[in-house]
Amino acid sequence: MEKVKIIETRNLQKTYFSSEGLPTPALRDISITISKGEFVSIMGPSGSGKSTLLHILGLLDEPTKGDYFLDGKNIKDYDKEAIASLRNEKIGFIFQFFNLLARTSVFDNVILPLLYSKVPEKDWKHRALEAIEAVNLGHRKDYLPSQLSGGEKQRVAIARALVTDPSIIFADEPTGNLDSRNGHNILEILQNLNEKQGRTIILITHESHAAAHAQRKIILKDGLVEIDEKILNQLRPTDVIIK
């Protein structure tokens, strides 16, 4: 398979300034390339800069220095509006704390990104139902988040991430708030999205077990890439689930 670069960073730096003006470097020098269709896990102890990297790659934040090419285009060339629509069209987020809108049905949560998209309204319902079916929650579409289990909530979040048909999915500690059984279920879904639908998955985690489900792992330390290697024996959820 021909490898197309979807993400490329060159000497990415991010420095935060405290209220007294003291600089705290979060990312010192990150140059990585991720190809279309890869499943990459990013690991590292807290403070290593993995969240900061995810936010920059996910277009929620801007680097202090360095360049970030998304689909071959430098994001510096985009204005705020264009960045927002890139987030909408190309990127799907899954968060540790699900971030579903309370008092809003599963269906309405999933349809939310479409409100900000260019997708014609007549396709919304069909798209949302398809995404909900893809995570096996068809029977829960009219439920409220408060009526769902943690695993179900995270599946709703995945459906929401999928509804705009993004090419990259960023998962920020998606299993961090789940028990192992539900955690495996989520990892299985991510693997399926990667293998069956060819989506690029970037998984941030501090659990090496979860990270082992990816094809490649990047380990950050003190704002630098410490390890970037292929995972030889990609872990399959079926390997561990005891039936």
């Binding site: 987030r87 069209e89 987020f93 971030n99 990104p113 900000y116 929401r160």
Partner: peptide, 16 residues
Amino acid sequence: TREIGLRKAIGATEKN
């Protein structure tokens, strides 16, 4: 605040 953050993350512009 969280809702606003989420809406922005999934593509809402400042204008939205």
